[in-house]
């Protein structure tokens, strides 16, 4: 219950939604799925801008890209046939591990990105897949890579603006390893890999991402460097992942030391699964 909300807006255009978000007169916030906002009792929120009427919930193929509307739900991603063509379906798999079915059916991918849900493997999967994010603000639309989005920090990257869609490149191979106390708990740590290879198997681009270690998912450049330009066999999988340096913190799920050690273990498993 947001006690001080007086207005509920259902804009029919993006321009209208952006204008409401930039209102000087009242403090409006964007409502995607609402799964996080509905649990809040923030007294400062005066208006809700429901994105439900803007048609942002589609997942479609445009040329070599898969375009995911910001209001697509984790359950839509999990069931999407189109995502199977992207890095062996790791994004859909991570979407399937987002909390529980009763939230996967309502949360939105844009909301997960903007709320900085670092504990969600789906956020790490997006960084591993390496897409572009389209953001609409009062100066029009801009796009940035997921890398740039996380570098700037979600709240800065999309300040008073609305994430409208994600565009990701089809193809590639991928692997996803996670460590959790129980199957339905959030991950203590996750390792996600995307490889784009030449026809002879030489790695053109490697993206190796650790989720759950810090406030945002991170790429492990040291491991990526060791993979680039080579063919992945079991020996390289072992060698490249031996040192997987990450910054991390301890919490009640695991100590920082344990997370540091497991980052290498999970990455080794992910790479071993892709080795030929």
């Amino acid at each position: 219950m947001l006690p001080n909300v007086r207005k509920f807006y259902r804009p029919t255009s993006l321009e209208e939604a952006v204008a409401l978000l930039n209102s000087e007169k009242e403090r409006n916030v964007v409502l995607g799925g609402g799964t996080q906002l509905a649990l809040s009792a923030h007294p400062g929120i005066e208006g809700l801008i429901d994105l439900g009427g803007l048609g942002l919930d589609k997942i479609e193929r445009r040329g070599e890209e898969i375009v995911i509307g910001a209001r697509a739900r984790p359950s839509d991603l999990f069931r999407s046939e189109l995502l199977r063509d992207v890095a062996d379906n790791i994004l859909a798999e991570a979407a399937g591990n987002y909390l529980a079915e009763v939230q996967r059916n309502r949360a939105s991918i844009g909301g997960i990105l903007i709320s900085c849900a670092a504990w969600a493997d789906i956020a790490a999967a997006l960084l591993a897949i390496g897409g572009r994010i389209t953001i609409a603000g009062k100066d029009g639309e801009k796009t940035m890579t997921v890398d740039e989005f996380y570098e700037a920090g979600p709240s800065k990257a999309a300040h008073r603006a609305i994430i409208t869609e994600l565009r990701i490149r089809a193809g590639g191979r991928g692997a996803y390893q996670r460590l959790a106390k129980t199957e339905t708990d959030i991950s203590i740590l996750s390792s996600l890999v995307r490889l784009d290879e030449e026809t002879d198997g030489t790695i053109r681009e490697a993206r190796v991402v650790i989720g759950g270690a810090t406030a945002l998912p991170v790429r492990v450049r040291e491991v990526e460097e060791k993979l680039r330009g080579k063919r992945l066999d079991p020996a390289l999988a072992e060698e490249a992942s031996r040192d997987c340096p990450i910054e991390t913190v301890g919490d009640f799920r695991a100590s920082a030391d344990y997370r540091r050690k497991m980052a290498a273990v999970l990455t080794k498993r992910a790479l071993a699964a892709l080795a030929k």
Partner: peptide, 18 residues
């Protein structure tokens, strides 16, 4: 949990107005 358009959802996480 309730069903919204056939999908199970936590009713505590949904705004009625939406």
């Amino acid at each position: 949990t309730v069903l919204i358009n056939g999908d199970p959802v936590n009713s505590c996480q949904v705004f009625t107005a939406s």
